[in-house]
Design a protein around this nucleic acid. Structure first.
Lengths: 209, 209
DNA sequence: TCCACATTGTGAAAGAATTCACAATGTGGT
DNA sequence: ACCACATTGTGAATTCTTTCACAATGTGGA
């Protein structure tokens, strides 16, 4: 059973987890691949195919146990209590620091790093703001595997240089710059500009017809 | 020349625009499809193929004029001075309101809407915070085509109900809920949880080998 | 003006992802 | 214990996307 798992499957797995969390909160016990259509935009056979890459989790004629499948998928995706840091105590950094949703995915924000003297030493909602100069040492002593980067684009490359120098494995990139890093570091970018441009295109098209 | 343009092409177009903006700032005059590889993660023939869906913009033997191509792509994607509103004056709403990058894509934030008495009537950085009860009327009188939704997930459905009732064409969704809307409304979701779960999966895999 | 060179634009080939369709199998009612 | 039914899991067919590879064509130097 040695097959490579499609990229697109990996993109969908977290969505399945979210749907299962939602159903679980609503005390739903069983769910069929068809039920997913109400909550997410994929067709039933794709869900079954996706799951089949990892095992057989369903009961024929019945569906999937909500809590059972949730646990399996969480295990598959590695939701096992990660810790991270946020780089940048600006607007986005602050918003992320206050974000409650990280609990659901068992993510803990350990600290925020910034270069602004006035911010260093303060707290954002129980989380300390530390000097960015101490970041590399911190990442290594605390064994941080990935970081969330929310600094102004202008200093993105500077920060990336420091990260390359550390043994970080991944970067969640909120800057609008393309980050050029060695292959050992995984970059996942979240970029609002590009999404909004897609919206523009859609609006233009829908005006045309 | 009536062909359907791949979804994936539309995702990449905004990235090309960003690269061209960057090169333009650096006073670069010409760029080849190969040059793009430095700034974005796609191979040259895909760029050429993507562009070919819209026309012929290059000069053989030379490449593409940076400003020329930028203008063409902006026209194609419909970067023509859109206006929008932000729904939710919480952490994310505030961060977005202060975001400078919207200038580049010629997007103007007209107003922010919230239901919190204490916020209504105040300003966030020259942008007024208005009562969410007045949103529908505002959207219609100001001809807003799409909105940016940054409210707590718990009230997402409430807001969506109002939007469905208006003649909004699109929603940029920052909540972590799946929004169930009629086909005439395009939803584009930006969700950090799912991206972070992908990162967990990558970390797990890279630990295994 | 000519020619060696570079790069585009694009059919055709290869590769990936989605959808179909149905055998396999557990369910739940009688 | 049986059977009509529902839904999974999965090869095979289809559709979509990327990559290849090369003819077409403009460039820039001699």
């Amino acid at each position: 059973m040695k097959m490579t798992i499609p990229e697109s499957t990996i993109h969908r797995m977290p969505q399945y987890i979210k749907v299962l969390e939602y159903l679980d909160e609503g005390k739903v016990l069983f769910v069929t691949s068809r039920d997913f259509e109400t909550h997410i935009d994929v067709n039933p056979s794709i869900i079954r195919k996706d799951l089949s890459y990892f095992g057989e989790f369903g009961v024929r004629g019945k569906g999937y146990s909500v809590t059972g499948l949730k646990q399996e998928l969480e295990k598959i995706m590695g939701l096992t209590g990660h810790r991270t840091i946020i780089i940048g105590a600006g607007n986005i950094g602050k918003a992320l620091t206050n974000y409650k949703g990280f609990d659901n995915i068992k993510l803990k924000i350990n600290a925020v790093f910034d270069n602004d003297e006035r911010k260093i030493g303060s707290m954002i909602n129980t989380i300390p703001v530390l000097d960015i100069k101490t970041m590399k040492a911190y990442v290594e002593s605390e064994n941080i595997e990935f970081v969330i980067m929310a600094v102004p684009s202008s200093i993105a490359d500077l920060v990336v240089d420091q990260l390359i120098d550390s043994d970080i494995k991944g970067i969640i990139n909120f800057t609008s710059k393309f980050l050029s890093v060695p292959k050992r570091i995984k970059v996942i970018s979240i970029n609002i500009d590009t999404k909004i441009m897609e919206m523009f295109y859609f609006l233009k098209k829908s005006r045309m017809k």
